[in-house]
Design a protein around this nucleic acid. Sequence first.
DNA 1: CTTTGTGCAAATTCTTTGCACCAAA
DNA 2: TTTGGTGCAAAGAATTTGCACAAAG
Lengths: 138, 138
Amino acid sequence: MLTTLESHKYLRQHSIKPSVQRTAVMDYLMNNRTHPTIDEIYLALCPNMPTLSKTTVYNTLDIFVERGAVRALVIDEKNARYDIDVSAHAHFICRSCGKVHDIFNLKSELFEFPKLSRFSINAVEISYSGICDKCKGN
Amino acid sequence: MLTTLESHKYLRQHSIKPSVQRTAVMDYLMNNRTHPTIDEIYLALCPNMPTLSKTTVYNTLDIFVERGAVRALVIDEKNARYDIDVSAHAHFICRSCGKVHDIFNLKSELFEFPKLSRFSINAVEISYSGICDKCKGN
DNA sequence: CTTTGTGCAAATTCTTTGCACCAAA
DNA sequence: TTTGGTGCAAAGAATTTGCACAAAG
């Protein structure tokens, strides 16, 4: 369980002022590495922060992404999802339950950018999809 | 320029009845390999098919994807995009203009599925992002 | 004070749904 | 006829915007 102090430190490293709301969102992301949606974050924090607004959650994640503190995933056609782990790893989304899982330990070559004169590439996203074991009934 | 006859043939190969609307959408996809959105397809076909509805474009693409005739891309957080080329290739999206480009000739290993006991993987999507040369001003 | 952050409500955008009508087999 | 396809209008869901108020320095 990571603490609020660690969230503060991480936010400051990314030049983000640690307000109560921002710290709460960062704490949540650090402790729930499930690639949550805005709604999931909002609903999880609401009980302890009844005045929190969804707009603030949107604003907060926009800043986090802009400052490189979190990665926005484009893998789920329904909602944006957010990942606190910005290191090179891939994702798997289950077409049945919609859950997104991390895939680590892939060859590092997979994450290299092809050298193309037409584009300046600065990010890559590798997304696998299929059915997870839970949904297959094993 | 591919013809309506070729669209018919391709639709039949995928067990899709070639209605006037479906053929028009397929013709458009075959001749405009720009990963169009629903709206782009709809607006492009409207002049020649004033009675066309956007619902039909949605229905049509749902069937195409379901039957494996086109690929739905999850790369643009704003809209679904569709690709008639279902072979193994990657995409690049420009963060400035939003255009999606194909990247061919990558190593085939990139498109192999990792063997993981937890998931049954049946698709992979590799998406690069950055800035295209036009937007950089070259 | 002055700047920055928060939160409500309304607006916008993309997509889906319900249902009536049309068309083909 | 019966089934499947089309299209309108309405509904739904995710996100963005405008603005007033609160908080921090």
